[in-house]
Design a protein around this nucleic acid. Structure first.
Length: 443
DNA sequence: TGTTGTTTATTACCAC
DNA sequence: GTGGTAATAAACAACA
């Protein structure tokens, strides 16, 4: 049976996915994205995570000087970045949107890696069509199902959720849809629910098999295997150009910080005397071919597909990303099992154990003396005005994203980090950057 | 006719 | 090297 840890795992994963919910009205049509939901934006988290993890520095001035919520870099952007972009393993796989492609390796070695880390720190999967999300198809399906908050979901709804939340797939060759269908059919975790005879519409519904839910969910959100990354010089130039012209971001394109730009410059210097040869790069260590995009600028799918029934339209409306903090804590703290009400869920005894075993980054931290009261009301609701101190945020970032989805550690079942404790600790360290520094060195 | 669903095959990455 | 897993491609059938 699916027990609370599984749900916790899912919920925590959700919290990191940070997809914004869109309000759905009675008509099922989705409304505007919560642009001002600063608390649900974790872009600052990923940026911090990258800077902290890859530059090995204190919270960088670049970060400090920017809007801690990150939106300042995305004028007009309606979507936050995906926190997982901060995961070095989910590195940019920059290639022209088209047929989903793997990437070949970079000749730049560690420098390239650093550059990639910087270049991808601002990746916004929701608006960036150039970067393939680092999730497996099964994960994407699972995410869509979870976001739907329904027990079953149509194939078209899965498509739509993916294209809504991952711009890459809007422009990619539709073969990925074949992969989705293939995955649904092949993966035992997914059960087909036939449509009722009197139910209009095409195809059936799909849901997560409770029997495999634990496995799927504990393994879900695991980043897909990603080959080493190459960044084509042309892309680098493009990044630089757009960074300059846009003042550092926007438009869903990759945006880079000053530090990133410097690294890019260094990278160019290192590689400037070599002719870029993707074939050589491919030969270097990757057998996977670099497919030629079939369609560079496919017309994006519309949100409201004429192929969808009224019910499906409604369903899709509710799929506008539910990976917001409020939803997360609705499900985790309030034990809202509605999304899995047919999964034979064993209700949790307590969302958070009182047993304190706070281990962050391999270090044990003694339990705090007091508990942060009901954080879902104080910290993570959409209506909150988010005056969380930067220290708090950065601490949370480190605790939460130091190893966000390491293989084998990505299920928060195995994690001994308790969010309550993290928040409590962060509270204890708020308003004191020195405390932050201490923590950083500790971690 | 397009979508949905199933199946088979190939290739590649990764852990062991 | 091998097995597991995942991505990709393709063929085919059923269905609205």
């Amino acid at each position: 049976s699916v027990e609370m840890p599984i749900l916790m795992s899912l919920g925590m994963a959700d919290s990191c996915l940070n997809f914004h919910a869109e309000e759905t009205d009675e008509t099922g049509m989705s409304g505007s994205v919560n642009l001002d939901d600063s608390l649900t934006s974790l872009q600052w988290l990923q940026e911090f995570s990258i800077l902290n993890a890859n530059v090995n520095s204190k919270p960088s001035s670049a970060l400090i000087n920017q809007d801690p919520h990150g939106y300042s870099k995305y004028p007009g952007s309606v979507a936050p970045s995906s926190p997982l972009a901060a995961d070095p393993a989910s590195m940019v796989m920059p290639h022209t949107p088209g047929k989903p492609t793997p990437a070949s390796t970079s000749r730049a070695g560690h420098l390239g890696t650093a550059i990639q880390a910087h270049a991808m720190e601002d990746i916004d999967y929701k608006t960036n069509p150039h970067v393939k999300p680092p999730y497996s198809y099964a994960t994407l399906i699972c995410m869509a199902m979870q976001a739907s908050k329904k027990t079953k979901i149509t194939l078209s709804a899965i498509y739509k959720w993916i294209t809504d939340n991952f711009c890459y797939f809007r422009y990619a060759d539709p073969t990925w849809q074949n992969s989705i269908r293939h995955n649904l059919s092949l993966n035992k975790c997914f059960i087909k629910v036939p449509r009722e005879k009197d139910e209009p519409g095409k195809g059936g519904f799909w849901k997560i098999d409770p029997q495999y839910a634990d496995r799927l969910l504990s393994g879900a959100f695991k980043r897909r295997r990603m080959p080493p990354v190459q960044i084509h010089p042309a892309l680098i130039n493009r990044i630089k150009t757009e960074s300059n012209s846009n003042g550092g971001g926007g438009g869903g394109m990759l945006s880079v910080s000053t530090e990133s730009e410097q690294l890019l410059k260094e990278f160019e210097e290192v590689t400037s005397d070599q002719n870029w040869n993707p074939t050589d790069a491919n030969r270097a260590s990757h057998k996977r071919k670099q497919p030629v995009p079939k369609r560079m600028l496919k017309v994006p799918r519309l949100s409201s597909s004429p192929l969808l029934s009224q019910e499906e339209q409604t369903e899709l409306g509710s799929l506008k990303g539910d990976f917001d903090w409020e939803a997360i804590f609705d499900s985790t703290l309030s034990s809202d099992l509605s999304a899995f009400d047919d999964l034979e869920v064993t209700p949790p005894v307590s969302p958070f154990s009182n047993e304190v075993d706070l281990t962050v980054h391999g270090k044990h931290i003694d339990p705090p003396q007091k508990w942060c009261p009901v954080m879902q009301d104080q910290v993570l609701t959409e209506s909150n005005e988010s005056n969380m101190d930067f220290d708090e945020e950065t601490f949370l970032a480190t605790a939460f994203l130091q190893h966000p989805w390491e293989d084998g550690k990505n299920d928060f079942l195995s994690s001994t980090v308790n969010l309550d404790q993290l928040f409590d600790l962060s509270d204890a360290f708020s308003n004191d950057l020195n405390e932050w520094n201490r923590m950083e060195s500790f971690l």
